[in-house]
Design a protein around this nucleic acid. Structure first.
Length: 418
RNA sequence: GUGGGUGUAGCUCAGUUGGUUAGAGCGCCGGAUUGUGGAUCCGGAGGUCGCGGGUUCAAUUCCCGUCACUCACCCCA
């Protein structure tokens, strides 16, 4: 048989209720915060991602699904959403008639990694981009939305960590200091981190290897190198979060893996998840628009991994099932009347179903039981002769008799619809 | 890309120190019950023991390879 691709999962019907809540909540909450949905393509020119995410990041170096188009143009399945949104923003001139614009998206992303718990090659993200404001309140809004989303879904064991990477100039000064510090500790560093000294020294800070952690323990803090305005911005973000009672802690080691971040960065992790416990993360990316050929535009955003949300989603978040009716009709006249009733129920917006593969009352009831039907309409030749239907409550076993002609509307009311 | 674990019925897993016909629970089908589901009892169907090779009189079992799944590293959502 032909199997699916490694790390790429089907979402089966029994998982859909969870996806339903997760997606509906995302749409509803983003829209209450004033964000508008945008849909962007799942693939783009490769250079878009190389320029935005950064050529030396793991994502670009080894995790992208890249392939040539017929004319040779290199295309890539999107590994994240921000680059595409920014591209669309610039290309479509979405900025021209408003000073700031708030967008959100939900959709699949692709990264060629070895799959494990909470990590897939095709996964889904809900992300928002608050474009056009450098005000710390924009950071606060994004982080608040992120936090409220998880709260609405009642996810357990969450913690929000914040850091500030400062402006490019701040970071440059800090990097120099950090590199010279790390060189004094080079013996204690892992091979990977020694390599990072050249390419991406900040990443050594969140290396999990004990030796590196120890070596970087008394490393200088990035926050000590922030300019006065960067520091002020970060302070205001923290105050803003306090004002809306979003709990956070500061993590001086928090460094994001994508090159475009600056200033505020944040990450929410979930203790219910295992090794891949980052469930949502983001930050400010004031320089990205220019990098991609747009005018200088400040922006802040985040992305949430929906598969990870679903792994942590408690059963209690699911809405109660909608009541519905299984039509158990049998006998020649019964089946015919059953077909008509089925259609009237559906026309009255009542979920109704039956099973054409069984034909005795016993087996019809068994089907209804397997489908977890809360109600069953019993409709055999006898009922048709008497112009009646029987409505059976499967849980209480109580049965009520209604006239066949008005059955649909009576049943509709009986199920609690108005 | 690297490392560990696991592949036996539709599902969850036993088991065979190498030996006739490979088991259980759940699920499925039928009957007890010809117009009333779930429970109980009885009966039944269902297996290339992941795949390929090697050793052996004999391999599901031992060895090698391979593939898949899975967890972790790395990295990230």
């Amino acid at each position: 048989m032909i199997r699916g691709i490694k790390g790429i999962k089907d979402i089966t019907p029994d998982e859909m209720p969870k996806w339903g809540v997760v997606e509906r909540t995302a749409h509803a909450l983003a829209q209450t915060f004033g964000f508008q949905e945008i849909r962007i393509p799942v693939f783009e020119k490769t250079e878009l991602f190389v320029h935005s995410i950064g050529g030396t990041t793991d994502i670009v170096e080894k995790e992208m699904y890249t392939f040539p188009d017929k004319d040779g143009t290199s295309l890539t399945l999107r590994p994240e959403g921000t680059a595409g949104v920014v591209r669309a923003f610039i290309e479509r001139g979405l900025k021209t008639y408003e000073s700031s614009r708030k967008l959100y998206y939900i959709g699949p992303m692709f990264r060629h990694e070895r799959p494990q718990a909470g990590r897939l090659r095709q996964f889904h993200q809900f992300g928002v981009e608050y474009v056009g404001s450098s005000d710390p309140s924009a950071d606060v809004e994004a982080i608040t939305l992120l936090w409220r989303y998880f709260s609405a879904l009642q996810l357990p064991g969450l913690s929000l960590e914040l850091n500030s990477l400062g402006q490019l100039a701040d970071r440059r000064a800090y990097k120099e200091e950090l590199v010279s510090f790390l060189k004094t500790k080079a013996d204690g560093l892992c091979e990977n981190c020694r390599r990072r000294l050249e390419a991406n020294p900040l990443r050594a800070l969140d290396c999990k290897i004990p030796g590196c952690r120890e070596a970087t323990n008394d490393a200088p803090f990035l926050t000590d190198f922030l300019s006065a305005s960067s520091k002020e911005h970060f302070e205001q973000v923290l105050q803003g979060l306090q004002a809306v009672a979003v709990p956070y802690s500061i993590n001086h080691r928090l460094v994001r893996g994508l090159d475009y971040y600056s200033m505020t960065t944040f990450e929410v992790s979930c203790s219910a998840l295992g090794a891949q416990n980052a469930i949502g993360a983001g930050g400010r990316y004031d320089g990205l628009f220019e990098t991609l050929g747009g005018s200088s535009t400040p922006a802040v955003g985040f992305a949430i991994g929906l598969e990870r949300v679903i792994l942590a989603l408690p059963e209690s978040t699911l809405p109660p099932p909608v009541p519905w009716v299984f039509v158990a009709s049998f006998g020649e006249k019964g089946r015919q009347a059953g077909g008509t009733l089925l259609d009237s129920l559906r026309s009255d917006h009542v979920k109704a179903d039956t099973d054409y593969n069984t034909s005795t009352l016993k087996t019809l009831l068994r089907s209804a039981d397997r489908l977890n039907a809360p109600y069953v309409v019993i409709l055999g030749d006898d009922e048709v002769d008497r112009n009646q239907v029987i409505l059976r409550n499967m849980k209480t076993k109580e049965q009520e008799i209604y006239p066949l002609d008005s059955a649909s509307s009576v049943i509709r009311k009986r199920l609690g619809f108005r």
